[in-house]
């Protein structure tokens, strides 16, 4: 039986790429655009390309925020990608100050560098350092420390509680490149765009959904 994974379409997506990657991992990807549907699933992905403010506002407007909280509180697996990952945090500061989902206490801030050689956005393949937690072990099962993943972002999340982080990355500063805490996983990098290793993370997620 194929595992059914919900891909939340809230109008800020690289929906298609995520669906393609899940299919490649032999999962059944179901795009949902209503918060009512999410409770039917045991695994869900919150993707996202775009700006924090409009996306956060839209989630609230459509009652997705409440649905996602109920979903997570029931212990089901959630994975946030890029903007979806950033929306997990308490607050974001892109084009103003906005409230996120607060699934991971912490803030999302802009990269600011004096050095013009440190280009913004942080765009391309960078290596990560995997954290030493049991959740990180599950997320990065069979993935080497220092493996490279594809990033593209100008803002970075930093959890208040370090054990929520599952990896770190270095770009001018050390930032949190992914979180894994209980049933909430997310990454700043794009697993669906990081070749074989990225697909392996999605396979690990699917595996966790099936546990």
């Amino acid at each position: 039986m194929q595992t059914k994974i919900a891909v939340i379409d809230y109008g800020f997506g690289n929906i298609k790429s995520v669906v393609n990657a899940l299919r490649y991992c032999n999962a059944q990807a179901c795009v949902i655009d209503s918060p009512l549907e999410i409770s039917d699933f045991y695994g869900a992905i919150l993707p996202g390309v775009g700006a924090f403010g409009p996306a956060a506002d839209f989630l609230k407007l459509k009652d997705f925020d409440k649905a996602i909280h109920n979903y997570v509180n029931s212990g089901k697996m959630l994975y946030g990608i890029c903007l979806g990952f950033q929306l997990f945090f308490t607050k974001g500061y892109e084009n103003g100050e906005y409230e996120g989902l607060n699934l991971i206490p912490g803030e999302v801030r802009k990269f600011e560098f004096e050095d013009k050689n440190l280009k913004i956005p942080h765009m391309g393949w960078n290596n990560i350092e995997i954290a030493n937690t049991k959740y990180a072990d599950n997320m990065f099962n069979l993935i080497d420390n220092k493996e490279t993943f594809y990033f593209v972002h100008s803002y970075y999340g930093m959890p208040k509680n370090l054990p929520h982080a599952s990896s770190f990355c270095d770009y001018g500063i050390k930032f949190c490149s992914s979180v894994a805490y209980k049933n909430v996983w997310g990454s700043q990098f794009h697993p669906e765009k990081s070749g074989e290793k990225g697909l392996k993370i999605l396979a690990n997620f699917i595996n966790e959904v099936n546990k």
Partner: peptide
């Protein structure tokens, strides 16, 4: 840039 994110 505002709607879709400047990175794309």
């Amino acid at each position: 840039g505002y709607k879709f994110g400047i990175q794309c």
